[in-house]
Nucleic acid binder design. Sequence first.
DNA 1: CGACTCCCATTAGAAAAACTAATGAAAGGT
DNA 2: ACCTTTCATTAGTTTTTCTAATGGGAGTCG
Lengths: 299, 299
Amino acid sequence: MPRRLPNLNQLRAFEATARHLSFKDAASELFVTQAAISHHVKALELDFGHQLFQRHGREISLTEEARRFVADITPALDQIAEATATLKSKGLTGTLKLSMAGFLADRVVRPRLAEFKALYPELQLEFSYSRDIVDFSTVEIDAAVIYGEGTRKGLASIVICNERVPVCSSSLMEGLELPVSAEQIARLPLATTKGHTTGWLDWFSAAGIDDTSSLNFIEFETGGHTLDFATTGDGVALVADFPLIQHELSTGALVIINPLTITRDYGIYLFFPETQNPDPKILAFADWLKSVAAQIQAG
Amino acid sequence: MPRRLPNLNQLRAFEATARHLSFKDAASELFVTQAAISHHVKALELDFGHQLFQRHGREISLTEEARRFVADITPALDQIAEATATLKSKGLTGTLKLSMAGFLADRVVRPRLAEFKALYPELQLEFSYSRDIVDFSTVEIDAAVIYGEGTRKGLASIVICNERVPVCSSSLMEGLELPVSAEQIARLPLATTKGHTTGWLDWFSAAGIDDTSSLNFIEFETGGHTLDFATTGDGVALVADFPLIQHELSTGALVIINPLTITRDYGIYLFFPETQNPDPKILAFADWLKSVAAQIQAG
DNA sequence: CGACTCCCATTAGAAAAACTAATGAAAGGT
DNA sequence: ACCTTTCATTAGTTTTTCTAATGGGAGTCG
């Protein structure tokens, strides 16, 4: 007799909801909207012929049967997750040599190294620092994380995050209301890295402002400096909607002053030499880095 | 840290394949085509970055890592299936009083009673026999399984199976090749239950034959009799593609002589009095009966 | 040896499922 | 009383999944 399983996507939605006791939070964990979760849970309740949650206004609680049911399936899902992690990491041993800008390593990768180690226990990461692309033929590097355009000759690339939003310090916001209009932003000092004003030009173009002659750019050596400039309240930076600024956003040191996000070629990419079969270690790292980005964007 | 799960539908496909060591058989277990399984497994292999099966011509075998992985996830899926079964059956206690034609009870339901009991251990079934709908206001019956039209005034209905195919004994097939053309079938004796020639008329209409004046109908009291008639080689019966004839088909006593299947209003339905909230016991039984039908049609 | 059969792979397109945006409704907080 | 928060629902879109058709390779049988 073949095994009879419920719809497993619905099951996952239910389990996440049960953990959070919130449709909204479950939705954010699974990177979907609250409506999607609501649909899933409702379908599951219909299938099972039992209520799974009691709804009291904006609160929900598990029914007696549902409580028992989660207790049964949670370890099962854990086991699947663990077996999957083990399988994925299998064979990924050795060292992956990465090049990236210092502020990316400091702010994004290193603080989460433990998490990465848990997923790929036998994989060592080695860092070297370069804000720009390296020459793979002369430097012994497997892959490079670059904040820039997504295509380079002879290199394969994987998008990590190509959405960018304008941020500034809350102190600069005095007297202004969120969202700050693009016209107002155009009058503020705009931080960029040297020679990379394209991002801002794209952003204003997306905001419907084409006269960019009067923009006031302040150029810096590194992306970290543009962030510092914004953080100290001296101007606005255009940054990837990425773990980069997670801490600052949550403490309120930085604020997204206009929700307009541009998705252009300019963003964070992982580059590596083009081959038929890319090194699985690189793919694993790219996969992980993307998940880090996704986690943040989901709030 | 949110749990990271693989696509669970792909996982189910993989697990079924691993049990059967066959894409084809896994497909049939899951009621899909072989291509669907192939896609799922391939996607999983891509996600994991590992081959899961070695392909040797038409044989497949598990890779070493995959073997380990199945061993990990199989108990997890078992546990989910079991927890689901428990939850579904919860609260379904007492007795469900069913009315159905004798041959349906004898051929379909009773041989599988043990299976039903396993799913709903606290639910008793009681049978009474009627080929036609009963008057729910006078007879103490919860639901009726009827071979007929799918809509009756004041009653809700659930389709169990509304596909019908022509069958006859292999002895009648002497000198004919499968599939037998509709024109040839039109010359054979056609068994129906009394006053229900609609099924055959629909079938011939679907086959493109509109002149039904010369058809040779033999009418019987019960559906069982039309099957007997076909089994003894005296003519052709039009039956639901359903467990009814499973045994006869597998032994070769009956043969589907033309694959044309009609899906019309006439079929097997579960009827019960229309209410706002149907008795979950009825829904559970309908659910199970549908699964029995699906199992057979998948071969 | 060659035709045949049996599976798996691949493709393009169809069908179904999942998801979203928008909006409503209920309850809690201010 | 008003605003905020959260779940529900609807209709429509997007994405995923599935299928039908077809090709290829490896056994099998005459």
